[in-house]
Structure formats: structure tokens, C-alpha cells
């Protein structure tokens, strides 16, 4: 699979064609914007976090029967996905009143809603992404009624899956928005799922862990994104990499020599040589085996082994 020409560039992602028909690469950027692009900035590492998190969340949803455009993570900050005909509607699900909704309903910020609420917004920068009613949508011809129904019910189902998913990781999913598109006559969940498109609060401290930190200049944006990812990744099973570090041939191994002497004195005469080294087990997530091997070798060269005196060997188990 090869990355081809740039198809389009949005505020937080670039979309590329690939050599596979119907498949695209989403490249997640570190750039951030808010208030319809009036506020701009860089959140270092955001692209990586969003790609990784989208990968995890979409896989989680697929497992629970939600069809998504997501295929897999292809690099630190890129995912591979089906190309969709996007429906220009953002579907928001809210569990708490926050931001614009709190203003609109006159609720204090962070009021828990009686039941989850679904809203539709027009994906149109020029108009400032306004709130739409079903009648508006019918008038604009953006989607059919059945499509709207399917979007709303899928969105609520996503909420049912993700709310406890985040709760188990000490996070409150206050609200989020989804985008859908069509592929071969079927509706799939598209776009991304990341702190850019949802509100997440720490369950214990109620600290804001999403893009609101950027919108509201709360600082620690980078750390909050990384923390969200850390919590989500904890249970992700990736592969296990075994690293064996041994003294280089020809380098004296005092511990090995001592053990050899002791073994001989215990009567294990068949032992010819003993080399004592280190055995390191790493859990690696979200990368392919080949890439993982490469990365772990790099870790060995830089930190885990000292090439002056030590050799190492890397084994991978998926």
C-alpha cells in the first residue's frame, strides 16, 4: 500500500489517496483550531494521540457491531480507511450540558442531562456549523429521513458503548460528535474519534482532558491528550517483544565466570561457558511487527544495551 496524492486538507487532517482503490490515508496534524478557525495553535503530539485513539476507539466500536470506515493504523499519526461519500451533517450526542448547549438551555456548565441528547449540525464553515432541525435538513436535502434515523440510533449506540468504556478508564464522556458517509450503498461511521471531537473530564478531579483546554487556554493541552491516550491504551493488547542483552564476545563477563566456577564446584562438569546477561520484556502497541522490531532495535542501541560491551537480540510475539 502506497501513499499517493493529497486529496484534501482540513483543520486537523490531511487526506491522501493510496494505490488501493477506495482506500485513503488520514494524516492527523498537530495543528489545532477552534471557534471556526479564529483561534489557531500547535499541540505537540496531538496528531499521534488522535490517530492512535481513533484506531483504538474505532476497533472497539467494530467489535461491538458498529460499521466504521477505519481499517488500521499505518504509522504513528496515520490511519488507513475506506473512502466515503460524506453526509455534510455532524451528529452530536450529549450526556452533559457544556459549552453552547449550556448557554442555549440556560443550564449551569456540567449539568448532567436527564437522558442523552442527539443534535444535528450543518457541516458548513461559511455558516459557522449551525444547529439544524429535521425540517431544516429536509429543506436542504442533506439526508433522507431513514438516513437521519440510522445516524441518530447509531450515535446513541456509540454512546452506550463508549460511555462505560471511558468511565472504566476514569473519564467522563460529556459529549462527542460523529460524521457519517456512504460506501457501496451502506452507511459507515467516518472521520475520527479523539479529544478534538469530544469532551472528556477526569472522573475524580473533573479536570478537563479535551480540546476545551485549548479553546479556553487552560494550558497542559499536550499532557491531557497524552494522559487520555495512556488510560485508553493500558488494556490494549499489542505484541510482546523480548530483548536479550548479553556481554559481547570477547568482553570479560565477571558474573558469568563466577557462576561457571560455582557450577564446576557443584559438580556440573559438563558446563563449558556461562554468559550472564539481561532479559527485558516490552509490551508494544499500535505498530506492525516489522516496525516494532525496528523500533525496539533502536531502543536497544540508544538505551537498553551498551554497544561497547553488549550484544542484543530481539524476538517478537504477537
Amino acid at each position: 500500500m502506497e501513499k499517493k496524492e493529497l486529496i484534501s486538507e482540513g483543520k486537523s487532517k490531511r487526506i491522501y489517496a493510496t494505490d488501493q482503490p477506495g482506500q485513503i490515508i488520514l494524516e492527523f496534524k498537530d495543528e489545532a483550531s477552534a471557534f471556526d478557525g479564529k483561534k489557531k495553535g500547535i499541540i505537540p503530539g496531538k496528531g499521534r494521540v488522535n490517530a492512535r485513539m481513533s484506531d483504538i476507539v474505532f476497533r472497539q466500536l467494530e467489535k461491538r457491531g458498529i460499521r466504521t470506515h477505519h481499517l488500521r493504523l499505518v504509522s504513528e499519526s496515520e490511519t488507513l480507511a475506506w473512502r466515503l461519500d460524506m453526509i455534510p451533517i455532524e451528529v452530536a450526542v450529549r450526556n452533559y450540558a457544556a459549552g453552547s448547549l449550556a448557554e442555549r438551555l440556560g443550564y449551569p456548565e456540567r449539568t448532567e442531562l436527564k437522558s442523552p441528547l442527539v443534535e444535528f449540525y450543518y457541516k458548513n464553515d461559511r455558516l459557522g456549523d449551525p444547529l439544524l432541525t429535521r425540517e431544516h435538513i429536509r429543506e436542504l436535502g442533506l439526508a433522507k429521513d431513514e438516513q437521519l434515523d440510522e445516524m441518530a440510533s447509531t450515535a446513541l449506540r456509540v454512546n452506550e458503548i463508549l460511555r462505560p468504556f471511558f468511565e472504566a478508564r476514569g473519564l467522563i464522556l460529556a459529549d462527542f460528535k460523529l460524521e457519517f458517509g456512504m460506501r457501496e450503498g451502506k452507511m459507515l461511521l467516518g472521520d475520527e474519534f479523539s479529544p478534538d471531537v469530544c469532551r472528556l473530564w477526569d472522573a475524580e478531579t473533573l479536570e478537563i482532558m479535551d480540546k476545551d483546554r485549548f479553546r479556553r487556554d487552560l494550558g497542559g493541552v499536550e499532557e491531557a491528550y497524552a494522559e487520555v491516550l495512556r488510560r485508553i491504551m493500558e488494556e490494549e493488547t499489542g505484541m510482546t517483544v523480548y530483548v536479550y542483552v548479553t556481554p559481547k564476545k570477547g568482553v570479560l563477563d565477571p558474573a558469568g565466570q563466577a557462576a561457571l566456577g560455582a557450577l564446576k564446584s557443584l559438580g556440573f562438569d559438563e558446563v563449558g561457558d556461562v554468559r550472564i546477561g539481561k532479559y527485558i520484556v516490552l509490551k508494544v502497541q499500535g505498530v506492525e511487527a516489522e516496525r516494532a522490531t525496528e523500533r525496539v532495535r533502536e531502543m536497544c542501541e540508544r538505551l537498553l544495551a551498551n554497544p561497547v560491551i553488549e550484544d542484543f537480540r530481539v524476538e517478537i510475539q504477537e
Binding site: 565477571p254 558474573a255 563466577a258 551498551n306 561497547v308 560491551i309
Partner: peptide, 17 residues
């Protein structure tokens, strides 16, 4: 300094362990 490569070489355990 050795690990940082500012000086050449490396350290092994004392031979007496």
C-alpha cells in the same frame, strides 16, 4: 560520560563482583 560518548569505553562489574 562514557554512556554519553563524551569519553570512549565502558564499565563492567568489578572482577571480584
Amino acid at each position: 560520560l562514557l554512556e554519553a560518548g563524551l569519553l570512549p569505553g565502558a564499565m563492567l562489574r568489578n572482577t571480584c563482583l
